[in-house]
Design a protein around this nucleic acid. Sequence first.
DNA 1: CCTTTGTTCTACTAATAATAGAACAGTCTT
DNA 2: AAGACTGTTCTATTATTAGTAGAACAAAGG
Lengths: 128, 128
Amino acid sequence: MFIEIETNSAVPIYLQLAQSIIEGVAKGELKPGDSLPSVRAFAADLGMNMHTVNKAYHYLEEKEFIQIVQKKGVFIHENGVRLASPSDRDRLKKELRPIVAEALCLQLSNEDLEQLVRDLILKIKEGE
Amino acid sequence: MFIEIETNSAVPIYLQLAQSIIEGVAKGELKPGDSLPSVRAFAADLGMNMHTVNKAYHYLEEKEFIQIVQKKGVFIHENGVRLASPSDRDRLKKELRPIVAEALCLQLSNEDLEQLVRDLILKIKEGE
DNA sequence: CCTTTGTTCTACTAATAATAGAACAGTCTT
DNA sequence: AAGACTGTTCTATTATTAGTAGAACAAAGG
């Protein structure tokens, strides 16, 4: 699994890491039950701090994408690939709203937006 | 124009304000050339600091949604409602990507996503 | 027994968010 | 000409977040 971290990005690196893992699940590269590296190993691999990886893991645990098992390790949550719950949908809506508003100002039509989403899905699934 | 600011939100209030203004433009309540309140008046109205409103204004100026005219005031940019430029599209894509990845994990189909976007457009245009 | 696991603790630096008040140089109205 | 108003700039302070660092802990597992 290839993970690129942009140090200069405005997006915190723990979030970039979490999003990379989510993309891994999205493209099927990571499947429910799969184990993730230990916080120490991952940190060494990515050149970041153990606590930063830990932060990404807990962020993902709260969203129920991974499961942290005490003293054993971290795994893709059995329910990681699931049908969106109402709270899942609410979360997506809140995140999506400002982007849609901006798209309206930029006069993107429904078709434009759909095309944009399709492009992204392809990029995510094919990797970049 | 009704603006709600959630103090307890993880989203900084200057960003909430900026997004509210973008929504105002999106729904046509604010039109190119319209003037916005002075930083002082807006701050007093919203119960926040002058510098915080100023920060929101500069955030919007960088995105070319408003125009700040020295010693005169702030106005919706003449080019505020425009056809998306390539850099506009790139910006939208970057913001959209992690959300689309999450949606894939939550097994949302293209139709689900389109429906979600349609709902949001309605809510934004009708106001909440 | 020893390594590995995530956890917890303290500590520190840097950046961001938010507030506060004052002063400045122009614009605009009266 | 006076006075109110504009965004800007300056210094200051507080709180939170991001990130790093190192040590210690308890339990799982070979």
